[in-house]
């Protein structure tokens, strides 16, 4: 029994230490004023790498999720003769929940894992060490642009996801199942609030972007520089990011929409 408590305590302490190290790491990467002459081209390159190249998976996923929502929504709502509310249902579901959450999960799987593997490989092949020995801080040169790129990309990708999803829902609901187009857009317009729904969705995606990218770059930088270490770090990135997104989504939803 005592041994179990000791093991539990040790794991707890290690977890707190790890969070502390990750905080120090992020502060080291983001502290100080960056030189725009150097930083801006690096940021643009990373936004292309983690943001633009994630567009395909985001657009395709958004389209199919919107279409599925249209199909399921129509089936349920038509039982109550309320199929005209399908636009409102799809928009609220996407803007409040599925847009930020699914985008963050896809981002963690596609871009987060790639960030971890790239940074881990740079560590394993001594590229980060050689940078340090050249008097260049890898936290600022390698980590900071990747972090900012992920942080800025996720909200934009989430917005694109929601827009494409709403369009996909319209394809199924209006074009296929025959819901009146005016009802689809009109109900959406009257029931979706910019401040309550859209802005809260944006806040969620900003938080998810911050957390997912932080986890990805930290796991890469902190990994054991071997093939097994990089593999383990990449897995951790996807698992930790997914759990963090789902957990934080509940907390944020409770704070934003909970009526206590």
């Amino acid at each position: 029994m005592i041994n179990r408590i000791v093991v539990f305590g040790r794991h707890g302490r290690e977890m707190i230490e790890s969070v502390g190290r990750a905080g120090q790491f992020l502060f080291g990467a983001l502290a100080g004023v960056p030189d725009p002459r150097v930083g801006f081209p690096l940021l643009v390159r990373q936004i292309y790498s983690v943001g633009v190249l994630s567009l395909a998976i985001i657009v395709v996923s958004g389209l199919f999720i919107g279409m599925v929502l249209g199909l399921q929504g129509y089936t349920i709502l038509s039982d109550y003769g309320s199929e005209a509310a399908i636009g409102q249902m799809i928009a609220l579901t996407l803007v409040r929940e599925l847009g930020p959450v699914v985008t963050a999960l896809l981002f963690a799987g596609r871009a987060g894992s790639a960030l971890t593997a790239e940074i881990g490989l740079m560590k394993a092949t001594e590229q980060l060490s050689s940078m340090e020995m050249m008097g260049v801080d890898p936290l600022r040169r390698v980590i900071a642009p990747r972090f900012w790129a992920g942080f800025l990309s996720v909200p934009v990708l989430a917005a694109i996801f929601s827009v494409v999803g709403i369009w996909g829902g319209m394809l199924v609901g209006v074009e296929w199942l025959g819901v009146f187009e005016g009802s689809y857009w009109g109900n959406m317009q009257s029931s979706v609030s910019f401040t309550t729904d859209v802005l809260n969705g944006v806040v969620k995606s900003v938080v998810f972007g911050f957390v997912c990218t932080w986890i990805a770059v930290y796991q890469g930088y902190d990994c054991v520089p071997t093939s097994a270490g990089i593999s383990s770090a990449t897995t951790k990135t996807v698992v930790f990011s997914s759990l963090a997104v789902l957990g934080l989504d509940f907390v944020l939803t409770a704070v934003m929409f909970g009526d206590f």
Partner: peptide
Amino acid sequence: GRKALYRLREKMGMLFQSGALFT
């Protein structure tokens, strides 16, 4: 400190075993 160390490293070159070229 960090700045002074990085300034000192500008006077140093290091050839790593793997070469450590930026790929």
